[in-house]
Design a protein around this nucleic acid. Structure first.
Length: 287
DNA sequence: AAGAGGCCCTGATAGC
DNA sequence: TGCTATCAGGGCCTCT
């Protein structure tokens, strides 16, 4: 579900709530997430302070005072919710995702602080928690992921040489976290539209000029999405109960049959399954 | 080695 | 109303 911009919005909100706070207790109600939460998981977190909340790609990173790191990936349907303790368990507009009311089902993990707790909810259980022992192991953990679009390493030379001679389609590359990390299905579609490139265009056919466009537009789409508070496909909200607004900027995603938003283009947005994922594109201006 | 496809899981929605 | 089928924003694994 959440791509880099949504995870970043969660990070920002979460950081304000739990930075420099000490974890009192961790309750695991269901260990069976994407990867099983190990039995000693709580020991790594209980009694530790959250020094900082970082993010890489679609991963949240809780930096613990012990020098350990707790990684959290939200998968497709993972959401975080804040419950304030001293208000008779009244849940205010504090959920990060989906609803201002704490869902009744699928609340798998609780991390409890002095005055509040955060609750991890995930119906599909594609998300996961992971403990990483130190900074060296953290770097190693992410070493097989490609650069984020914002990193200077993600430049047109890098893109061009990665695509060179490859038969895979470009949409597939944008979703490949080893190539570039943080982009998911929604933003891949939007990036390709802005770059005037058809999602099923083969890697080896992508010109240098198009590689430049991909770099520029990846950065543009993701940073605009962060500025707008992410995309609310269902009822995404930050901790203040505000919805993301980027879905209003979608040019192609979920716009099948509607007219192309590019000025003077007479095209219609098509939907096609490419590499097992829904792809949306203009039949005229994307080539 | 690259690339296609399957699979993990629940819930919402569409169609009969 | 109640069944079944399809689809959903991710990523890992296996097979060819």
């Amino acid at each position: 579900m959440p791509e880099l911009p949504e995870v970043e919005i969660v990070r920002q909100s979460l950081s304000k709530k739990i930075k420099q706070k000490k974890v009192q207790k961790v309750i695991i109600r269901n260990r069976n997430l994407r990867f099983k939460i190990p039995l000693n998981f709580a020991n790594f977190i209980e009694g530790k302070k959250i020094i900082k909340v970082k993010r890489f790609s679609k991963y949240l990173i809780l930096c613990l005072s012990s020098g350990c790191y707790c990684l959290l990936h939200l998968g497709m349907s993972g959401t975080l919710h804040i419950v304030n303790k001293n208000k008779k368990d009244i849940i205010t507009n504090t959920s990060f995702y989906n609803s201002p009311i704490l869902p009744k089902k699928h609340n798998h993990v609780e991390i409890i602080f002095e005055n509040l707790k955060i609750i991890y909810n995930d119906p599909r259980r594609f998300g996961f928690f992971e403990i990483v022992g130190n900074l060296y192991l953290l770097k190693k953990r992410f070493s097989n992921l490609g650069p984020e679009p914002f990193q200077s390493r993600f430049n047109y030379e890098y893109v061009f040489s990665f695509l060179k001679g490859k038969k895979r389609n470009i949409k597939n590359f944008l979703l490949d976290q080893k190539f570039v990390s943080g982009i998911g299905n929604i933003y891949a579609n939007e990036i390709l539209f802005l770059s005037n490139i058809k999602p099923d265009k083969k890697g080896y056919l992508i010109k240098k000029k198009e590689c430049k466009k991909l770099v520029v537009n990846s950065r543009k789409v993701l940073s605009n999405a962060i500025k707008k508070g992410g995309s609310s496909i269902k009822d995404f909200q930050n901790i203040y109960g505000e919805k993301g607004k980027f879905q209003k900027n979608f040019k192609v995603y979920e716009r099948r049959g509607l007219s192309c938003k590019r000025s003077r283009c007479q095209g219609t947005i098509q939907k096609k399954i490419i590499s097992n994922r829904s792809s949306f594109f203009c039949n005229i201006c994307q080539k």
